[in-house]
Simulated scan of single mutants.
Amino acid sequence: MNAILLQLAARVIRVVMIIASVFVLFRGHNQPGGGFIGGLLAGGGIVVYVIAFYNHPLLSKTLRALAPMRVIGLILALGSGILGVLFGESFLHALWWKIELPLIGAIDISTPLIFDVGVYFAVIGVMVMVILLLMEDRKWS
């Protein structure tokens, strides 16, 4: 089956969902949202793309390249907790730093943001892993 309209819509939907997921990720520690909901949005965009292009020969290889994101996410989330211990506070204690960038200006980096980014990557990685398992089960790859 070659659903051209579905493939065209999937390309647009994927981009919109990933942009929305990044927005939800970065507003999450001040308002509703965060790494989990952002990761679900990004993973949903990837799922829509997989449904549209399930018989594409490079899809399985691309998804396998994204699968290690779950490990990277867990390392970031754990690392944000360990930073508090390294600075003499408790595990997952919130720390903030102000970094000056040449063209952007001053930005605030915090351990809650690092934790949210870790959760974001972990959720995307797990969703991609589930998609890969379903593809192998159905012999789609």
Rank of each mutant, 00 (worst) to 15 (best):
A3S: 12
M135H: 03
I19N: 08
L134I: 09
L132A: 05
A9F: 11
K61R: 14
A67Q: 14
D137M: 07
I51W: 08
V50P: 03
L83I: 15
L63Y: 07
Q7S: 09
S60I: 03
H56V: 02
R138K: 14
R70Y: 13
V85G: 04
I114Y: 06
Y120T: 04
E100Q: 14
L5R: 12
F121Y: 13
V50E: 05
F87L: 13
G35M: 01
K98D: 14
L92F: 15
L103V: 15
A20S: 15
I72Q: 00
I4P: 00
T111N: 09
R64Y: 13
L76M: 12
A42Q: 07
F87V: 05
R27L: 14
D137W: 12
L41I: 14
M1K: 11
W96I: 00
F87P: 02
G38L: 06
D137K: 13
S21Q: 07
H29V: 12
L132H: 05
L101I: 13
I72D: 02
N2I: 05
N55G: 01
L66N: 04
L25G: 09
I99C: 03
N30H: 13
G118A: 09
L86P: 01
G38C: 08
L63N: 07
T111H: 05
M1C: 01
G88V: 10
P32G: 10
A10G: 03
I109P: 04
A3R: 10
V50R: 03
H56P: 01
A42K: 00
L66A: 11
A77Q: 03
W140C: 04
G45W: 07
F115Q: 02
V71F: 14
N55P: 01
R11M: 10
I72V: 15
G34H: 09
I114T: 06
R14P: 00
S80H: 09
Q7W: 01
G28N: 10
Y120P: 10
G81A: 10
L41M: 14
V128P: 02
W97R: 03
G81I: 06
G43V: 08
